[in-house]
């Protein structure tokens, strides 16, 4: 009997990543920060298969030699503005209000982060929730970067966030998923999709994170900072896809002792 996969419809069904009223095929979102140059940023984004890429909103640098936008195909990628560097709800809200005037943003999706501490870049829970409530009321599709805290996840869901984005470990740390149990509890606590944002270090982290059953992952530093960002972007794509497929396929339970995979019946000696 040929057990090889023959038809797509024999594969576990994956109906894509839902973020509010939007749906995406790719479950990997990538950042655009910290690349050695814009060409590598572009090639990595393409290799990752991501449909959403995050960007910051900053004052125009009149001395810049190169324009980031000329490397981004707006028909291919949905730009997701972030609020990196904002320490208060007010600053984050005002930053995102600015995006309404930027035609490069084709959706109302925003990545909301309100930082509470410069050393850990951990979010400020109170300010985050405050900003989320204001932005939801203003019609934004709010994607909050948050601590891996199930109680806060529920509050953000109740505030109207159509997705929650707990961290795996601190931004740029590459420590991987530090509390997989909390991520699982968050996934069971909220009914909106869960996207793990920050901390993934390499492809196995991405795979293991997806095996937990989360809906997506946002990665920047682990790709941009790799020796070969383009190849790492492809590795992350495959890690995310493998992890999702393994989750949908249902892993075997762990057992303490061996269970023979070869039958004993018909043994000769």
């Amino acid at each position: 009997m040929n057990s090889a996969i023959k038809e797509d419809d024999e594969m576990p069904q994956d109906d894509g990543l839902k973020i509010g009223k939007y749906t995406f095929k790719s479950r990997l979102i990538v950042g655009t920060g910290k690349y050695p140059d814009f060409q590598t940023m572009k090639d990595s984004a393409v290799a990752s298969g991501a449909e959403i890429i995050t960007v910051a909103v900053r004052r125009i640098d009149f001395n810049a030699k190169d324009n980031m936008l000329s490397y981004i195909d707006l028909n291919r990628f949905t730009l997701l503005p972030n609020t990196a560097g904002c320490y208060t709800a007010e600053d984050a809200v005002n930053t995102l209000r600015l995006t309404r005037e930027l035609d490069v943003f084709k959706t109302d999706m925003v990545k909301l982060e309100v930082i509470g501490d410069a050393k850990t870049l951990y979010p400020d829970n109170e300010e985050l929730l405050k900003a989320a409530k204001i932005l939801v009321k203003e019609g934004f599709t709010v994607m909050p970067y948050m601590m891996d805290d199930p109680v806060l996840a529920k509050k953000l869901e109740d505030a109207g966030c159509p997705v929650v984005m707990p961290l795996a470990s601190p931004i740029g740390s590459g420590l991987g998923i530090r509390n997989p149990y909390n991520i699982k509890i968050i996934k069971e606590t909220v009914s909106v999709p869960v996207i793990v944002d920050a901390g993934v270090g390499t492809a196995s982290d991405a795979c293991k994170t997806m095996e937990l059953g989360v809906d997506g992952i946002l990665i920047n530093t682990a790709i941009a900072g790799a020796n070969n960002p383009v190849k790492m972007a492809l590795a992350m794509k495959q890690g995310v896809e493998a992890g999702r497929l393994a989750y949908l396929s249902g892993r075997i339970p762990m057992k303490l002792y061996a269970q023979a995979s070869t039958q004993m019946e018909g043994i000769v000696f």
Binding site: T32, M41, V55, R59, M68, P81, I171, G172, N220
Partner: peptide, 10 residues
């Protein structure tokens, strides 16, 4: 006056 555009970010 603040003149703003997109920039690299995660």
């Amino acid at each position: 006056v603040d003149l703003v555009t997109i920039a690299p970010g995660g």
